[in-house]
């Protein structure tokens, strides 16, 4: 009898330890980054251009570039993702095409980010001749986050009660108008919070933009979507591995990392909080 409970105690101890290790990993990483990076953060750091071959000055162009790329990725991923999910939840009947689409989405979700980078280089930069540019980078990131957005949208659309659809259709309102006027507005908050997690991913990715959009240094801010940009993740990589003076720029590196983590985890945290709030206050 005792042995049975001892086993249980040991097992539960291990299980709790795992949870603790994971929490400590996140906590430790975030702590180290904040601890080392906070000193570099200042208004100038966020709003000024880099100077002295990027060993001094700020990271404003990289912040701006990441914002541009992220907005571009949303502009591509969100409409496509919502439309795909509408097809899958509202229109599709089970069959070969749906199976094909679902396998396609799963496989796309599994494509490594560096392969997305190669795809962006081979297709947008070279084949479509967009060059290394905001456009190429946004398209690459947009397709990278497409599966996340489809998943989030599908879940949100499925959560809209079937009775709403029936009520609308029974009034002689067409399928499309039912989808547009009843289903979509009720699913939208869920779609957006779910998609934010994908947006965070787009903001933090490095490999997909390395060959498609990111520049080591740009003297001017981008003037059009066909210009290259600096971006926070790439800036970190470059400073940490190929900068002019790697050790001397450590504070700048930590500061940039802190800014990126704050942006990405900030976005994620907002999504998690809004989602929790929405779940507690569900109206139907």
């Amino acid at each position: 009898m005792k042995w049975r409970y001892l086993k249980q105690h040991i097992f539960f101890g291990m299980v709790r330890a795992s949870a603790l290790i994971i929490t400590l990993a996140l906590g430790g990483i975030v702590f180290y980054i904040v601890y080392n990076g906070i000193g570099a953060i200042s208004w100038e750091f966020i709003t000024k251009q880099p100077t002295h071959s990027m060993t001094k000055g700020g990271i404003m162009p990289a912040i701006l570039g990441t914002i541009y790329l992220t907005i571009g990725a949303i502009a591509i991923g969100l409409p496509l993702g919502i439309a795909s999910a509408i097809y899958l939840t509202e229109y599709a009947k089970q069959g070969r095409i749906v199976r094909l689409i679902k396998v396609g989405i799963n496989c796309l979700a599994g494509v490594p980010s560096v392969v997305f980078g190669l795809f962006g280089l081979g297709f947008f930069v070279i084949f479509l001749k967009f060059g290394s540019s905001i456009l190429s980078g946004s398209l690459t990131l947009g397709f990278l986050i497409l599966p996340t957005i489809i998943g989030a949208s599908e879940e949100a659309l499925k959560a809209v009660p079937q009775t709403f659809r029936e009520a609308s259709l029974s009034l002689g309102v067409s399928k499309w108008q039912t989808t547009y006027r009843i289903v979509l507005p009720n699913a939208l908050p869920g779609i957006l919070t779910g998609s934010i997690l994908g947006v965070g991913r787009a903001a933090g990715e490095t490999a997909p933009i390395m060959f498609t959009a990111a520049a080591y240094f740009t003297a001017k801010l981008p003037g059009s979507i066909f210009d290259e940009v600096m971006a926070l993740p790439y800036h970190i990589y470059v400073l940490a591995t190929a900068g002019t003076n790697i050790e001397a720029t450590r504070p700048i590196q930590f500061g940039t990392v802190l800014v990126l983590v704050a942006v990405v985890l900030g976005i994620d945290l907002i999504a998690i909080i809004i989602r929790g709030y929405m779940r507690r206050n569900k109206r139907w």
């Binding site: 009775t163 029936e166 009520a167 029974s170 009034l171 002689g172 009843i182």
Partner: peptide, 16 residues
Amino acid sequence: IRRKIGMVFQKPNPFP
């Protein structure tokens, strides 16, 4: 057809 033949369901289902 549905415009001419209306329906009321088992559970009240007003729109939000």
